[in-house]
Design a protein around this nucleic acid. Structure first.
Length: 812
DNA sequence: GAGTTTGAAACT
DNA sequence: CAGTTTCAAACTC
């Protein structure tokens, strides 16, 4: 993934982290204005994420400014499950699409002006749609569907509709209700898709659209990408028809733009023309597959990728070869949001507004830029949420100044906010000062934790060491990731005192919470106030919660660090917390690495050493500086160094598999040397092991499994036997003790002297030897030993009773 | 418990 | 990226 440039990153909201990639790529203005929409169906290889959280639902709210009358939106979605799509433009045409199921949605308004030129080119590597001229997105649209596709065409092109309908077996009822279009029975679930238009009804391009429709009939071609039919507009233009250079896109599997072909599922691509300078520039869109920026480089023009939050009207042309891959999300569903700005040269230059709300899974990301353009309204609806609570916030931008709406109400204390990242091993406690408490409480949404509600803590960040440089962002938002079953969260804020948790420079530390080992403290941005983020192991948070008032005033990050350095109970290598808690981590024995390299399991698991046998250990808060440096080094070497190695595999494969695969050569992957075997998973295709025997049908593996099971059974039996014996002894003591103690004598166990104990052990050992010599089964041997132990106890008790009786007689 | 084996991590 | 070295855990005796 390309590194975010500082200047671009400064414009990025922090919500972009851990979400689907959102890329806006701008092409220098050396070419006629156009829009290149790259629909791509790259490989479905999911990008490793910090969590294995599958995103079931997607919410996408896309709002862009088209202050001019020209506007083009192209929307192509695929694999949308429980998705919500909200598209809004400054041209007073907010759209809200809410769809469920895996409908393939294509929203492509035709060009509103006769000068518009759209040309679709295809190549082996991709398909691009180049739009020249300005376009207007206006209602009414023609909605047609074909194979879970919806085509919105402002022009009621009966031809296209009929063609689409004829090709579609699914029935749709397109109903226009005032400013709403209700498309029912879309897709498989029948979840209605609502295209909601602004109440003003002012659709600048309606009349014009009709004319355009006549003069320029929409041309849609059915393109099947990834086995799904996609309608791709082929819009002719009276203007200069500049052929679009064939985009050089990797992993594009669109082989035929006009014919149905089978390919991998296409990605979710939104192409939207927005207002910007240099509208004559042809804009090339780089598809992003699973967070991977696939740059299509025009033969002449360098690729340029801009962020959604970038003020396009000011800096598009000044940037070149800058890409930002926003928020790869670990999900099979790919999302690519491409926004292409175009503007009529003669139109009034208006400040670009590109508010974008992207809700992915349980997240809604909001990107907003101040604008002076006409108000835009984003209406987001989430009608298909299954496990999602009602959408808590809908960020609205596009109006002059900040016009965010629906900020998640925060129930937590303003000073301290806990962020729990699903799948992450760490909790993140946002450290704020009291002066910022009132505002930060509003803007951050730590209440996402469904497991550990935040509790008030007194945090003094003034002395917290800020070790990770973070450049202040223009907008400040927080990413709050929630478990799947939790409520969709939107954390949107424009509060200036919150900062972007994302390096503005290509820091080795990725903008990824899970990459941050515990103890990491984000430094406040220069002038950004004393707001820091401390990455704390989950255990620490738990401890903090147990002690509601914890003062973090130590320069070393946490006071009394030694006192809280108990072993963190964090999910390790894909194991659940319960698994890890039930199996305490082994203490390390590092001698040379100072426990600051991944050789050390403690360090690798993001834990402090505690009760370890290591020498010269630096993996503690006393050596925070060295530790953070080591963390940085590790992340520099491997950004995913601190991520669990065991993650979910592809569909159809085992749920758990090694992220990198093993490289075993001599162990046959049947010893704990093998990380796969150690994790109790089988080797996968990505393993590079030699002589692997750790596969499903392996007889060796089965044998080992049987042996392991047998051993486990034996352990359980022994445990049960010991428990039973203990119970029996306890009962026996309870029965005999009153009798003995009633006379004022000693209890039976007081007769267990050293000599008695040694004699008992000798008896037990002798019994074991006899059992071994007689080749008794282990279970039988254990039984005999236990019986002997019982006999010994009985003799002890009997002797004790006899001794007491004798004593009593003597006393008499 | 010492020594050996092993493979990941680190290094070149 | 490949080969080598380092390292600590796993394993054996």
């Amino acid at each position: 993934m390309d590194v975010v440039s500082p200047e671009l990153n400064s414009l990025l909201p922090d919500e972009i982290m851990d979400t689907e990639a959102i890329v806006m790529e701008d092409v220098p203005a050396s070419q006629p204005d156009g829009t290149a929409v790259q629909s791509e169906s790259g490989d479905d290889v999911p990008i490793p994420m910090e969590t294995d959280t599958p995103v079931v639902s997607e919410n996408l709210s896309f709002c862009s400014d088209a202050s001019s009358t020209e506007h083009t939106q192209a929307l192509t979605t695929s694999t949308i499950t429980d998705s919500m799509l909200s598209i809004s433009s400054e041209s007073q045409l907010p759209l809200t699409l809410s769809s469920a199921s895996s409908s393939l949605l294509t929203l492509k308004p035709t060009l509103a002006t006769s000068t518009a030129t759209t040309k679709t080119t295809d190549s082996v590597t991709g398909t691009s749609v180049t739009t020249s001229g300005l376009q207007r997105l206006s209602a009414p649209f023609t909605i047609s569907a074909a194979n879970h596709q919806i085509i919105l065409n402002k022009v009621a092109s009966s031809q296209a509709i009929e063609a689409a309908k004829s090709a579609s077996s699914s029935t749709q009822a397109v109903k226009q209700e005032g400013q709403k279009f209700l498309v029912r029975t879309i897709g498989k679930s029948g979840q209605p898709i609502v295209f909601q238009l602004p109440s003003t009804g002012s659709k600048p391009g309606v009349g014009q659209a009709s004319g355009d429709a006549k003069s320029q009939a929409p041309q849609f071609k059915v393109v099947t990408i990834g086995g799904r039919t996609e309608l791709k507009p082929v819009i002719g233009s009276t203007a200069s028809q500049v052929p679009t250079p064939t985009p050089q896109v990797k992993t594009v599997q669109i082989t035929n733009k006009t014919q149905v072909s089978s390919a991998t599922p296409i990605k979710f691509i939104i192409a939207n023309t927005v207002n910007s300078k240099g509208l004559t520039a042809q804009r090339s869109v780089s598809p992003v597959i699973a967070g991977r920026v696939l740059t299509q480089n025009p033969p002449v023009l360098p690729p340029r990728t801009i962020t959604l939050s970038e003020p396009l009207n000011t800096s598009i042309q000044s940037m070149s070869s800058k890409k930002i891959a926003i928020s790869p999300l670990k999900t099979p569903t790919k999302l690519t949001v491409v926004s292409v700005a175009s503007q009529i040269p003669t139109s009034t230059q208006k400040p670009m507004t590109l508010p974008v709300n992207v809700a992915l899974g349980q997240q809604i990301l909001t990107v907003q830029q101040p604008t002076t353009a006409s108000p835009a309204k984003v209406v987001s609806s989430q009608s298909t949420a299954q496990n999602i609570k009602p959408l808590q916030s809908v960020a609205v931008g596009g109006v002059s100044g900040s016009q965010f709406k629906t900020i998640i109400p925060l129930a937590t204390q303003p000073n301290v906010q806990q962020i729990q990242v699903p799948g992450s091993r760490f909790h993140y406690v946002r450290l704020v000062t009291a002066t910022t408490g009132s505002s930060t409480g509003q803007t951050s949404g730590p209440s996402t934790s469904s497991i550990q509600p935040a509790k008030p803590m007194v945090v003094n960040t003034g002395a917290v060491r800020m070790s990770v440089p973070i450049v202040q962002a223009q907008t400040m938002k927080q990413v709050v990731r929630k478990p799947l079953t939790s409520t969709a969260q939107v954390v949107t804020t424009s509060h200036p005192q919150q900062r972007l948790i994302m390096p503005a420079t290509p820091l080795p530390i990725q903008p990824n919470f899970t990459n941050l080992p515990p103890g990491t403290v984000f430094a406040p941005a220069p002038g950004g106030g004393n707001v820091g983020y401390a990455v704390v192991p989950a255990q620490y948070v738990t401890q903090f919660q147990q002690s509601p008032y914890v003062t973090l005033a130590s320069s070393s990050g946490f006071p009394a660090c030694s006192g809280i350095q108990s072993q963190a109970r964090l999910p390790l290598n894909g194991l659940s917390t319960a698994e890890t808690t039930s199996r305490p981590r082994k203490p390390c024995n590092c001698t040379k690495s100072q426990c600051l390299k991944l050789y050390c399991d403690c360090f690798a698991n993001g834990e402090f050493c505690n009760n370890c046998n290591c020498n010269n250990c630096f993996n503690n808060l006393e050596h925070e500086t060295e530790r953070l440096k080591a963390i940085k080094t590790c992340l520099d070497r491997n950004p995913e160094a601190f991520k669990p190695k065991i993650g979910k595999g592809k569909d159809g494969e085992s749920d758990r598999r090694h992220s990198k695969g093993c490289n075993c050569k001599r162990s046959g992957c049947l010893k704990n040397y093998c990380e796969c075997y150690e994790a109790k998973i089988m080797c996968s295709s990505i393993c590079k092991c030699i002589g692997c025997k750790n596969f499903e049908e392996s007889p060796e593996r089965k044998t080992l499994m049987h042996l392991a099971d047998a051993a486990e059974v034996r352990v359980q039996q022994q445990t049960a036997a010991k428990t039973k014996l203990s119970s029996q002894i306890s009962d026996l003591l309870m029965r005999t003790a009153p009798v003995i103690s009633s006379g004022g004598g000693r209890l039976p166990y007081t007769f267990v002297t050293k000599e008695v104990l040694e004699a008992t052990c000798e008896c037990l050992i002798e019994q074991a030897k006899q059992a071994e010599l007689s080749h008794q089964p282990q279970a039988q041997a254990e039984r005999l030993i236990l019986e002997e132990f019982g006999h010994c106890l009985m003799r002890i008790i009997s002797s004790a009773g006899k001794a007491k009786t004798d004593c009593a007689s003597i006393n008499c």
